[in-house]
Design a binder for these strands. Structure first.
Length: 137
DNA sequence: GCCAACGTTGGC
DNA sequence: GCCAACGTTGGC
């Protein structure tokens, strides 16, 4: 069971929209490392939903409803999408600043590689962020 | 708005 | 195959 984090610019797709819609295809990933992570996702695995650019905070949790399939927005057919389902909203959003202030979280890819949009999150970091977010892991 | 980090493109 | 130029992402 791997935990994940996915980024979305709230201008393009916000947590409020995800909550309202429930299930949404996660499309448009055009980076090989991120795409490899999408391909590794299994149904039922969970991911933090992070608002990039505006907010810069983890706001919710989604789960993988449908694993990797050809991204319908890719005409060449070489990239993949997954379907994400809204699970729950964090009691307290966990900001990037808060994460950076936490020595135990200094090594996560969100901090180490700010440009990666889909990444795995180690179990211990997942639990820590859930605590910071005011929810049970 | 700026810029660092990173990926991609194209000339050689 | 190297690397400079350029574009994009995303934090500040």
């Amino acid at each position: 069971m791997t935990y994940w984090l996915v980024k979305s610019e709230p201008d393009a797709w916000s947590w409020a929209q995800q909550l309202a819609k429930g299930v949404e295809p996660w499309t448009g990933v055009r980076n090989h490392q991120a795409a490899a992570n999408l391909r590794a996702m299994k149904p039922g695995e969970r991911a933090f939903f992070y608002h990039s650019n505006q907010g810069k905070e983890i706001v919710g949790i989604v789960s993988v409803l449908r694993p990797a399939y050809p991204d319908p927005t890719d005409t060449e057919g070489k990239w993949v999408a997954v379907d994400m389902k809204a699970e729950r909203t964090l009691q307290v959003p966990v900001t990037l600043a808060r994460i950076k202030a936490e020595p135990a979280l200094a090594d996560i890819l969100l901090v180490r590689n700010s440009r990666l949009s889909v990444m795995p999150i180690p179990d211990a970091a997942w639990r820590k962020i859930c605590v910071l977010g005011g929810i049970a892991p």
